[in-house]
């Protein structure tokens, strides 16, 4: 099981702050493919991954990053701090 988190407009579009996901996905990209099938809201939120950033266990990661051992995967837009 992986806990998937969403922030900012991704959270609003998906309609969930977090969800537990049973997955066999080997990479972030495979997980995204699976998540898109969960609902239309997921498919819409994750339709353009160019505007989405990913962190695995609170470290920034790429779409092809492996998920082996991952407990938490977060999706969010580019950061706007400062």
């Amino acid at each position: 099981m992986i806990e998937v988190l969403y922030f900012a407009w991704l959270r609003e579009r998906v309609g969930e702050r977090s969800e537990m996901v049973e997955t066999g996905a080997a990479t972030v990209a495979e997980l995204v493919e699976e998540l898109r099938t969960r609902s239309e809201a997921h498919a819409l939120a994750l339709s353009d991954m160019k505007s989405v950033r990913v962190a695995i266990d609170q470290d920034m990661a790429d779409m092809d990053a492996p998920l082996a051992g991952a407990r938490e995967v977060a999706f969010f837009p580019p950061m706007t701090g400062g």
Binding site: F7, A8, A55, F76, P77, P78, M79, T80, G81
Partner: peptide
Amino acid sequence: MDYLKSRAPFWKKEIGPDGENWVAARDEDE
């Protein structure tokens, strides 16, 4: 300041009389 702007996990939403709007990251910041 440059790094906090685009490498610290914060997201700003502007709330105005006409609605709400997530602040988009700017290319200049990157």
